[in-house]
Design a protein around this nucleic acid. Structure first.
Lengths: 128, 128
DNA sequence: GCGCTCATCAACCAATGGGTTGACAAAGCA
DNA sequence: TGCTTTGTCAACCCATTGGTTGATGAGCGC
């Protein structure tokens, strides 16, 4: 309803991307992948969790489209797909813009109200 | 580790904001609030869920800082705090930028490799 | 003051999510 | 070939979450 026309981005993917980045470990994985591709083992090393857990995290990131892993051999590199960020920023900007525009209108309204109040007084003493 | 210095934005809030927006109902609430404040009842009306459920969603949005509700009387308006969007876009842009810069460097690297191949011949006189 | 409506709180339920351990498939190396 | 390393799959555990129903407070209209 409010979203009519916003379906250029499927709601599901939006949910998956936001959900994927809701986890601090996964955000950190993304952060590290932003500096270069890495293998699962390399990614798992710095954490206090098992490789299996990291593997799960990567699958979440993959189904969200944030990460790709060409091939299916061991030691294949994990690659960050930064393009998906656009899906989020597009959504965010849409509503931020709407909210700010509304603020703009509100500010205008307040300005006009304040102005009217002042005009009240000016009314009495002056018409220059 | 990769995040050193990125703590201007507390990880917790980042998690809460992303998690809040991972739910389609909550995204829709934000969308509708971007067009103007509303009461809980008004927000709940269009959905097939109970008012209690919407109340819970609003609490999630509130603890994420996405929404505020001044006062504590019934029928108080729910207000969108669009400023929190910056928390997300800041995070996103940081790593998008890093990834894109890396792509840039990769291109550079490939360029340099191609160049080196050509430079092989010049090697003879380039004493270093 | 008496109800009515609006919203929250509380308890509960089913489903999801992040984590573990254990078993297993697939390269790489002796 | 056989062993080791790397990663995934499967089952299970516990905490969290989105939803419900039921009861309880807080203002507003009569």
């Amino acid at each position: 309803m409010v979203d009519e026309g916003a379906d250029r981005v499927p709601q599901d993917q939006l949910s998956r991307v936001f959900a994927a980045l809701a986890d601090p470990t996964r955000r950190d994985l993304v952060a590290r992948l932003s500096t270069g591709d890495a293998t699962v083992g390399e990614l798992a090393a710095p954490y206090g969790v098992t490789v299996q857990a990291v593997s799960k995290h990567l699958k979440v990131l993959e189904t969200a489209g944030l990460v790709s892993r060409p091939g299916d051999t061991p030691r294949r590199p994990v690659h960050l797909e930064a393009g998906v960020f656009d899906v989020m920023t597009t959504w965010i900007e849409r509503y931020r813009a709407a909210a700010e525009e509304r603020f703009g209108r509100l500010d205008d309204l307040l300005d006009r109200m304040a102005e009217d109040e002042q005009t009240q007084h000016r009314e009495d003493r002056a018409q220059r």
